[in-house]
Amino acid sequence: MNIHIRELNEHDPVVISASFKEQGWNKPVDLYLNYLEEQKNGDRVSIIAEVDNTFAGYVNILWNSYYPSFKDKGIPEINDFNVLIKYRCQGVGSKLMDKAENIIKERSEIVGIGVGLFSDYGNAQILYAKRGYIPDGKGIYNSHRYIERGDTVIIDDDVALYLIKKLT
């Protein structure tokens, strides 16, 4: 198995969207066209993994995180990390994370990442812990506000625990 890592290009959006559609996920072409535009503007780096010349997954670097704590501290965020189900637990995710961390290391000593709280995110939770990511100490955030004691929330993809790692 040959894993190749590279930046997103103009041919990728249609391929990525179709690949996720095959596994029943709705990831529209426009999402990746947006990523491409933001990459051209220098706001984001989108990294693609291919296994034997076939799309397998991607990850993004946001230089200016939407998460308030990272934004305030200038911490770049690894964002929207996805590996196709059939390529999980084969080293694809680790290679994507290695590349993202190496790119970030050129500009920052710290990297951040958010992870969902329910079982769909179990593999990611384990991967991040193994890679040395620790909670940032701010608690749970739902893309609008920090969750406080007594709050009632619906646990969905927007509710996350944010983690940080010192890059050495």
Rank of each mutant, 00 (worst) to 15 (best):
E37V: 13
N41A: 13
G114F: 05
V45I: 15
I85H: 11
L163A: 01
G57Y: 08
I147G: 09
F55H: 10
H11I: 09
I134Y: 01
G139W: 08
I140N: 04
E101I: 10
I75D: 03
V83P: 00
L33D: 13
K165Y: 11
V159H: 02
V51M: 12
N9S: 11
G74V: 08
D157M: 11
I147P: 10
F81H: 02
M1P: 10
G42N: 05
V29Y: 11
I3K: 04
L62T: 08
G42C: 03
E109W: 06
L31D: 11
W63R: 10
E22C: 04
F81Y: 06
I113C: 03
A124K: 02
D136P: 02
R107N: 14
R131L: 00
V153K: 04
Y66H: 15
R145V: 10
F70H: 03
Q125G: 00
L167A: 04
G42A: 05
G150S: 10
Q90W: 02
Y58H: 14
T152V: 11
D151L: 06
G116Q: 06
Q125W: 00
Y35T: 11
S143E: 14
K73M: 14
A160L: 08
P28G: 06
G93I: 01
K138C: 06
E77N: 07
I61R: 04
Y133S: 00
A100R: 04
F81G: 01
W25R: 10
G93K: 03
K99V: 07
G114I: 04
I5C: 01
N79F: 10
L167Y: 07
N82E: 13
E22V: 06
N102P: 03
Y146S: 08
D157V: 09
D52C: 11
D52K: 10
V83K: 01
L36S: 05
D98R: 05
L33S: 09
Q39D: 06
D43E: 15
R44L: 15
I140F: 09
S119G: 00
R149N: 07
S19G: 09
Y121H: 07
D136Y: 01
K86N: 09
D30K: 14
L33K: 15
R107S: 12
L163T: 00
S119V: 14
H144L: 14
V51H: 04
K71I: 04
Q125V: 00
I155V: 15
E109T: 12
K27H: 10
I140V: 15
Q125E: 00
L36I: 08
E101D: 07
S108E: 07
D12A: 05
V111Q: 05
V159C: 12
G91Y: 02
F118K: 13
R6T: 08
L31Y: 11
L117T: 04
